[in-house]
């Protein structure tokens, strides 16, 4: 019994101890809030940490939260007393809301000439770190002729089965909602009503849908145009492809911002500038499976990916103002 007790106490101490270590360390600590997959062993986190710590004489610590909207919620709850120096992993859809909280400070970094986004991006608070296009991914071995436009997908027979994500819980889900809205405008509900018969299900998270597609539950899955690159590089198979739609593809730009009350403002500024450097950007393609926002080179497999004719993107303000109404409209159209 004593042994069990000793073990339990040891376990309890070991759970709390790592959190206190940070306080004991003598180097200044730069705290970055980000989403969970960023910090995993295959995410960009570890390499970026090493690269930044080479020159900062500091200890970079990531705090990983469950989603990008979870990061914003967290700093809003913490307010001015937040321990975060930087939040990393918001996107254009959250920018206006984030700006309105007044929690973030101007980054003071030059963006002009250092970015390689397919759209104009200039902002004094947010620094873009990567971007991607949403796309439907299919298996070219079982589907020879994918739809070539959103319209063709909408008009496709019911036998074409797609799996998508919920706009309220998953970034790609919101992306598709905005994609359909930017293609169809006020006629979006009709397009959704036509799409409905082809939707196998609407999942909570991206992986739920993607794994269902890999298991053969659907012909196409809503994902990113870069998804096939993963299968080429990590699994040496080119059977998965993204379908290029002639109306253009909706974009996601992921951004970072520094907190107005950052405990380490100088380190935070230094990191904001570092984001567009090669040490950060070169890691992105094969860890976050997105395009680098800076001028880093991409692996060969990225060269075979589709390049959308048009990049669709609402302004952050448009999204912030309309997203609740558009989600209600989406719900209505799919619940008929």
């Amino acid at each position: 019994m004593l042994n069990l007790f000793t073990w339990i106490m040891a376990a309890a101490v070991s759970l709390v101890a790592p959190a206190t270590l940070a306080i004991a360390a003598d180097k200044p600590v730069l705290t970055i809030y980000t989403y969970e997959s960023f910090t995993s062993d295959w995410g960009p986190g570890p390499a970026i940490e090493t690269a930044f710590e080479e020159n900062c004489n500091c200890d970079l610590q990531f705090v990983s939260l469950d989603s990008s909207i979870g990061i914003l919620g967290r700093v809003q709850l913490e307010g001015a007393e937040s321990k975060a120096d930087i939040v990393l992993g918001l996107d254009t859809n959250l920018m206006a809301t984030a700006r309105d909280t007044g929690l973030f400070a101007p980054h003071g970094t030059t963006l002009a000439g250092r970015t390689s986004l397919p759209v104009d991006f200039s902002d004094d608070v947010f620094v873009p770190f990567d971007w991607g296009h949403f796309a439907f991914v299919y298996n070219s071995e079982t589907m020879a002729q994918p739809p070539v436009s959103m319209q063709e997908l909408v008009d496709a027979p019911e036998s074409l089965r797609i799996v998508i994500q919920d706009p309220r819980t998953a970034t790609p889900g919101l992306g598709l909602l905005l994609w359909v809205k930017s293609v169809y405008g006020d006629d979006a509900p009709e397009a959704w009503a036509k799409l409905e018969s082809k939707i196998v299900t609407v999942t909570k998270g991206w992986w739920d849908a993607y794994s269902m597609f890999l298991e053969g539950e659907a012909d196409m899955v809503l994902s990113y145009s870069t998804s096939p690159a993963y299968h080429v590089i990590a699994e040496s198979t080119d059977k998965y492809k993204a379908a290029a739609f002639s109306e253009g593809h909706y974009m996601q730009v992921e951004v970072a911002a520094m907190m107005k009350n950052a405990p380490q403002p100088e380190l935070a500024s230094q990191f904001m500038d570092f984001i567009l450097d090669d040490g950060f950007q070169s890691v992105i393609p094969t860890t976050n499976w997105m395009y680098p926002a800076g001028k880093a080179s991409v692996p060969e497999a990225f060269g075979d990916l589709i390049t959308p004719a048009r990049s669709l993107l609402f302004t952050p303000e448009q999204v912030a103002q309309n997203k609740s109404a558009w989600v209600a409209e989406w719900q209505g159209a799919l619940s008929q």
Binding site: P18, S37, T39, S40, W42, G43, Q61, V63, W207, S227
Partner: peptide, 20 residues
């Protein structure tokens, strides 16, 4: 979440989020 505090389901979730 925090960097030091990782459980198995959390690791599973991270693995999924990276296509694996």
């Amino acid at each position: 979440g925090s960097q030091q505090f990782q459980t198995l389901p959390w690791l599973l979730y991270q693995t999924m989020a990276r296509y694996r």
